[in-house]
Amino acid sequence: MAQGKVAAIRSDLDIVIARTMARDTAKALGFGAIDQARIATAVSELARNIYLYAGTGSVSVREIERSGRKGIEIICEDQGPGISSIDLVMQDGYSTSRGMGMGLPGAKRLMDEFEIRSIEGQGTTITSRKWRT
């Protein structure tokens, strides 16, 4: 399995760096143009959330394999305030920052698997995967 890559999120510039890293990795793994755009867009949303709500964190990207299928796994981690109700933040249009509230539900739709683990006061880890068709 190939070595993963990590991008630290500290500023809005790092959002662009993280999504470019994810796109390049997806491309190298053989994902087509539309999946590359889906993956880059999902990472853009999740990295912006880290920047906006936690201040700092990281995005890691790696190749995965499950029962002969190859895919990409993206882990977005922060030690920010955490999310108190995952059901609430997964609703289209819910935002505490007058954003569009489409980042989390949208990223979930763009990826194949999407899991949020969050502890209030400790931080949030979002693991998402997409499988190559």
Binding site: A33, I34, Q36, A37, R38, T41, E45, D92, M100, M102, P105, G106, A107, R109, L110
Partner: peptide, 14 residues
């Protein structure tokens, strides 16, 4: 607008 971008926008819900 690139086709991949248009598709992604709709799936994102925008």
């Amino acid at each position: 607008l690139q086709p991949a971008v248009a598709i992604t926008l709709v799936e994102l819900g925008l």
